Amino acid sequence: MQLVVARIGRAHGIKGEVTVEVRTDEPELRLGPGAVLATDPAGAGPLTVAAGRVHSGRLLLRFEGVADRNAAEALRNTLLIAAVDPEELPEDPEEYYDHQLMDLDVVLADGTEIGRITEISHLPSQDLFIVERPDGSEVMIPFVEEIVAEIDLEEQRAVITPPPGLIDDTQAEIASARDSSESARDSSEEGS
């Protein structure tokens, strides 16, 4: 299985180093010296990591055969792809690879179906599940402990406890329940 583990950013300095936007929780394993990575676009690779270091909070990599700034800048926006055994699991039991989460059913704690995870968006602040609803619409669910209560890989589902308003139906149900109670109150007041 192929997983995107980083995206190459700007060249750094004049000796072929590049900044990298890390997209893996295991950069020391996936992006360490000697790692051979496929690329997208494919013509840019494969690339072998010669060295890596952290500078001002950013990971810098140098690849074999990339010796100057021009060669490094030519790699900008290239995705780095690692081959991963599909049975391999992250060391931390609270972490998941994207391929483990794709196509999970998303349900509320009471079992109400919300949809299916079709995409995972990795943002700087948090990850988001892009969930396709049964009607074809999409909803974004932040992948944070306060909302995603449980990931059950055996049952192929993610149980969520969303705050009011996160999922359109929840807000509509609350509003319709309030409207019907107001209608009932208005009716009883009219009959008085």
Rank of each mutant, 00 (worst) to 15 (best):
A172F: 08
P142Y: 02
L104C: 13
R23E: 15
L31W: 09
V131P: 08
D110M: 06
G34W: 05
T24S: 14
E189F: 03
P164M: 02
E189S: 03
I120L: 15
M140R: 10
P142N: 07
Y96V: 02
V84P: 00
R178N: 07
E173P: 00
S121Y: 07
A177W: 05
V18D: 10
P134D: 03
V159R: 09
A51R: 14
V54E: 14
L104F: 08
D103S: 12
L166V: 02
E138W: 05
G34C: 09
E138I: 11
H99G: 06
R30L: 11
D179P: 00
S187V: 02
G43Q: 13
E21H: 14
V139N: 00
E190H: 10
L79K: 13
R178P: 02
E88F: 03
T19W: 08
E26Y: 11
L80H: 10
A83I: 03
L128K: 01
T118V: 15
D98H: 03
P27V: 07
D40R: 15
L79A: 15
T19H: 08
S180F: 06
E138A: 11
V49R: 10
F143T: 01
T161A: 04
V159F: 04
G16N: 05
G43K: 11
I117K: 01
S181Y: 07
A42L: 14
E91A: 15
I160G: 05
S187E: 14
Q126C: 03
T161F: 01
F143W: 01
A172W: 08
E73S: 14
G9L: 10
D168G: 09
D135Y: 06
V5W: 05
A82F: 04
D186P: 01
M1L: 12
R53P: 05
E113K: 06
E189H: 07
G165R: 03
G32Y: 04
L89Q: 13
I117C: 02
E182I: 12
V54D: 11
M140K: 09
L166W: 04
E145K: 01
D135H: 06
I151G: 01
A184K: 12
Y97S: 06
A35R: 12
M140P: 01
L75T: 01
V54C: 04
E91R: 15
A149C: 04
D186M: 09
D98P: 01
L37M: 10
